[in-house]
Amino acid sequence: MSDIAAPRSSTRSRSLKGGGRNRSGQTNFELYSWLFMRLSGLALVVLVLGHLFTNLMLGGGITALDFGFVAGKWANPLWQVWDLLMLWLAMLHGSNGMRTIINDYAEKDQTRFWLKALLITAAIVIVVLGTLVIFTFDPCLDPSSTLSVCK
């Protein structure tokens, strides 16, 4: 066990003087990360449960999922924004959780470094890929598409 974080007292967390560092010379990164987990978590409850409800409960559920289903959904800007927000928040929330777990269980500095490097790489690849997919999606890739934009 190397270092155990001191409890966050209100005086420590509120001080933003000195280039974002508090009196003990640390940044408030962990405080903001802790707060982000709670705020993004609340948003994700709505986003993810809404996603599961529309995709798995309504209509034919899982049996109805195919290219046409995705095309129909992303024809609506609401679902594009919904999925984009969900992608970013879930990846940041999940990666930050994994970072905490790496910090807790990987004891060697080198192991921690490489696990976090792998985590950050994976997170960036997934977020960039997912974002590009949402923005560059072409429903007319399907020749049998019945969407009005493809006619």
């Binding site: 290219f67 999940g94 997934i126 590009l132 997919v133 999606f137």
Partner: peptide, 13 residues
Amino acid sequence: FLLVHVLDTALVR
């Protein structure tokens, strides 16, 4: 699962 799910959805491209 999320990592896999983004990859499978990316196949729409």
